[in-house]
Design a protein around this nucleic acid. Sequence first.
RNA 1: GCCCCUGUAGCUCAGCUGGUUAGAGCGGCGGCCUUUUAAGCCGCGCGGCGCGGGUUCGAGUCCCGCCGGGGGCACCA
Length: 495
Amino acid sequence: MSEPTPEQQQDLSQVLEDRREKLERIRAAGIEPFPHEFSGREDIAEVRAAHQGLAAGAETDSRHRVAGRIVARRGHGRACFLDLRDGSGQIQLHAREDVLGQEAYELLVDLDLGDIVGAEGTAMATRRGGELSLAIDHWRLLAKSLRPPPDKFHGLEDTETRFRRRELDLIANEESRRTFRLRARTITEIRRRLDEQGYVEVETPVLQPLYGGALARPFTTHHNALDRDFYLRIATELYLKRLVVGGIDRVYELGKDFRNEGVSHKHNPEFTMLEWYEAYADYEKTAHDLEMLVADVAERVLGTTKVSRGETEIDFAPPWRRITLREAILERAGIDIAEHPTREALAQAMGTEPDPKEGWGKLVDGLLSREVEPGLIQPTFILDYPTELSPFAKAHRSTEGVVERWEAFAGGVEIANSFTELNDPDEQRRRFEQQAAEVARGDEEAQPFDEAFVEALEQGMPPTGGVGLGIDRLVMMFTGSQSLREVLLFPAMRS
RNA sequence: GCCCCUGUAGCUCAGCUGGUUAGAGCGGCGGCCUUUUAAGCCGCGCGGCGCGGGUUCGAGUCCCGCCGGGGGCACCA
């Protein structure tokens, strides 16, 4: 959307003029349109719960005090109905001139959709529809709305407005309100579960002198007083493992990571990641823990482990399918990567020219993301990745050339990543050197050498299993959303 | 960065192969209506079609450029 011209500003103000005029009328009547508080109110959901099943036509003398936004109005001359909504729910108000008095009634009728009011009255159920309502005898303006709300029936559908002005989306669309409540409950349940299992929640630096823990390009920023560049973290991994070295045997962090890469239906430059580490565990234990965690949280939040997303239904009930990366690629692409152990051989098998920037591991990664990943609808663990793609994972205990690592997929999207953590400091040092070779090849996502991390490993880290779980993507699955933007309140947009 | 689609009143949309002062519903404004619920009835467009050029007697309607949005490619969790 381009900047409005002065003419458009003029037109816009015409639309808003009525509301401004009403504001002035209200002030002229000696009423403060933006008072400071409205105490003693109940959540609308509580009022509804208190009168569930009230018979049509019934009137009670049960008094309630509520507040919220007026979302609809139906006038009947000397009486009217208002739909009032707060954060917990919606209720109908019934207002009568003979009860409120002419002055208060006319001010009420003069309100606009979107205005925020407080009201008090008795519970009743309407004759015809039996709808629970409050027959109000007092009301008060709590905040004047100076801009018109979205269409009360069609809601707000324009994606640009929905994402840029999420408050309007939340006002207009129950679906969005549900999505973000579900997101919050998902995070709450995850945290509760980890806390109950004795995990310690920590906060490690977002601003890092050196980035690491994932293969991704970072955002760079500058600290003025120190006159040096910092990176926004791309992962919490290395700091969390240092805490395992420090003796926090079960540790987790839930927070934002930042990756300086493209935006898509499954990528946002900042996203919420959960990482947890458990000392003395390996990647088989973490796989079991993840499927139990996701299934348990789904059960608590959704009441089921089954979610429908588009045409498909995804069932998170454990155990999830487990297949090695080699078998998965063989199954989907008909190429046995073990038989093509060099980048030249593999590129030939794939029928492509090897990009000089891509090593063997990158080619394997390409096969995985293009040929395998889109087909992984039901929850699946892909096991045992090439070493060069996994600089922080321990070599497989029995298979040559791969590490003990899995990625979990659902709905054709990667939702989690885990390994038996590499705790041999000398091997870690060699892996960093291998990454340096990738950098020399032109790979901008390879790991920089982190001396402090290697020194921590030299201190001695127990055998450890670690997991990274993409919260946004998990919520995307739980809500059946096709795009990450549906589960991010304010997704990244251009400009 | 590339390709395709798209941008009309506050909101949701319609505008046929270019042709009289651009339409509908919701919302708004005025009037009627004391249990309605997408309340109803009567009256009033409150926008000049994302922006800038161009073609044409004449352009939301065609062409070019720019901006925003969506999808795909590439990249990635």
